[in-house]
Design a protein around this nucleic acid. Sequence first.
DNA 1: ATATGTGCAAAGCTTTTGCTGCAGT
DNA 2: ACTGCAGCAAAAGCTTTGCACATAT
Lengths: 158, 158
Amino acid sequence: MERTVPRPRLYRDAILALLRRNLTHPTVDWIHQELRKREPRVSLATVYRTLRVLVAEGVLCELPFGAGQSRFGLVKEQNHYHFICDSCGHIHDLPGPARAGLETAVAEATGHRVIRHTTEFFGVCKSCLANAASSAEAKKARPRKIAPKGGKRGERYR
Amino acid sequence: MERTVPRPRLYRDAILALLRRNLTHPTVDWIHQELRKREPRVSLATVYRTLRVLVAEGVLCELPFGAGQSRFGLVKEQNHYHFICDSCGHIHDLPGPARAGLETAVAEATGHRVIRHTTEFFGVCKSCLANAASSAEAKKARPRKIAPKGGKRGERYR
DNA sequence: ATATGTGCAAAGCTTTTGCTGCAGT
DNA sequence: ACTGCAGCAAAAGCTTTGCACATAT
């Protein structure tokens, strides 16, 4: 056959490359689709397995936001500040304000042991703002009423 | 039959009462079990439906943390600061530092429109610290290696 | 009588796992 | 020969939904 793909950790680097290029913490499905453009035989199970390994290694982090599929992104620095677009669901990294005293303050106030913290900002991202502006006003009110979770999940956000 | 329950919004208040008493943002399953102790015929579907309505009304908020079932809690004040225990999964409310200038600073830096933000502190809660101390040291290392999400979800955290 | 809420069961989606087979050492 | 990884398909878990019926207005 054409190339008879190499075995060990075959798609590991390809997935990391994708995540290095896409900084919006894509869904598992997006990663799978994108990978398939180059390697049509990749199975979704392999993508999941690879992602789990990378998370266990500390290279990636999983973000539970977006109310649907899990999203994964690189763990760079101590960057745990995100902006999450309510409209398109993309998650952007932010430079962390890095407030050190905050954790100890919480620990002293509550008695819990605080190890780390994250902050998420929600709103409408730059490009969605632009899209909304260009498509005038009266087009159609966006549904977004009850936000289903289990049902037609993957159809929202890309 | 015994009582022939009243119809409209039958369990709405009962669920709210439960959440008013339990401040750790319980899982759907916990709510269901608890409700069943008084109303054995409640179905899980009804619990989900009621919770979705309450979220849509803005009375409750859904928290995507814990990597398993969804968790729900009351929306009180602007309280969007949480402490999440890595060990037991409970989510405790914290009094918010309420830093107003933060959102506008992020908006100016990124170009996104920022509407709200949340902060989560992770660590080990007071009671888990106590339990760990009482069960000496050598008992068994806690597994927690790869953190499965879809498989045996509900078995973790209560 | 109508409209709405509920229970039950089934469907749907995401994520994991078992098994088989192939590839590299 | 052995080990380990990938593909496929099936299973498992959480959440939603269709349908029938009961209940309040």
